[in-house]
Design a protein around this nucleic acid. Sequence first.
DNA 1: TCCTATGAATAAGC
DNA 2: GCTTATTCATAGGA
Lengths: 118, 118
Amino acid sequence: MGRGRVQMKRIENPVHRQVTFCKRRAGLLKKAKELSVLCDAEIGVVIFSAHGKLYELATKGTMQELIERYGKYTGGPPADEPMVEPMDAKKEIEMLKQEIEILQKGPRWTLCFKKSKC
Amino acid sequence: MGRGRVQMKRIENPVHRQVTFCKRRAGLLKKAKELSVLCDAEIGVVIFSAHGKLYELATKGTMQELIERYGKYTGGPPADEPMVEPMDAKKEIEMLKQEIEILQKGPRWTLCFKKSKC
DNA sequence: TCCTATGAATAAGC
DNA sequence: GCTTATTCATAGGA
C-alpha cells in the first residue's frame, strides 16, 4: 500500500512498527464496525500490543457478553454441520419472512453463465 | 468502494448483504492477521453473523487462551461455561430458512456454481 | 500529524 | 466464483 509493497513479516524498525500498529489498528477496528453495521453482525475484536496493552471493540453489547455468547456457542453440541444458534424466535421468524418477501419481489437474473467447470 | 460509495447502514437486500458479509469478513480477518504479523500483536476476532453463525480468528494460541488473557487484564471473572438453551418454533424457522435458501440459489445458479462456502 | 502516490479492498455486474 | 471500475487504506516523506 501507499508507497511500495508491504512484506508480510514483522517490522523490525520499532518506530515504523509503532506507527504501522497505530494506523492499522484504527483501520481494523473501523472495518469491524462497518461490517457489523452493514451486515447486522455482532463482532468483537481484542488486540494485545507487543508490549501487552489492550485494545478492544465490541459492536453490540459488551465484550463480556460477547465472550459469554462465544462460550455458549463453542460449548454447545459438537455439530458436524455448521451450527446455528437460536435467537429470539419471534424476531427471527419475522426477519426471515421479510427476507422471503424481498427475494420474491426482487428482480431475478435470467442469465446463466455456463462454465465448463460447473 | 468498488462502484459507488457505501452508505454506512444495514444493507437491506439480503443477497447483497450476504455477498458483502462474505467478502468483508474475509477482508477483516486478513487485516487482523496482517496486523498481528507486522506488529507482533496478539489478536482475536469473533464474528456472529445475523443468523447466529460463528466465525473466529485467534492469531496466537487459541481463542480460549486469549479470552483468559483478556479476563486477567480486565480483572473480570473467567469465561462462563456454556448453557444449553431450549427452543420452540424452531421448526418454523428451519422451514423459512430453507425457503430462503431455495429462493436465493434455486433458479439462478443451479447449473453453474457450487454451493457457497459462506 | 498531515499529505500524497500507490497498492488493496471491494461493489457491481457477469 | 471471476472481472473491472472505483473508492479506500496506508507507507513514506515533509
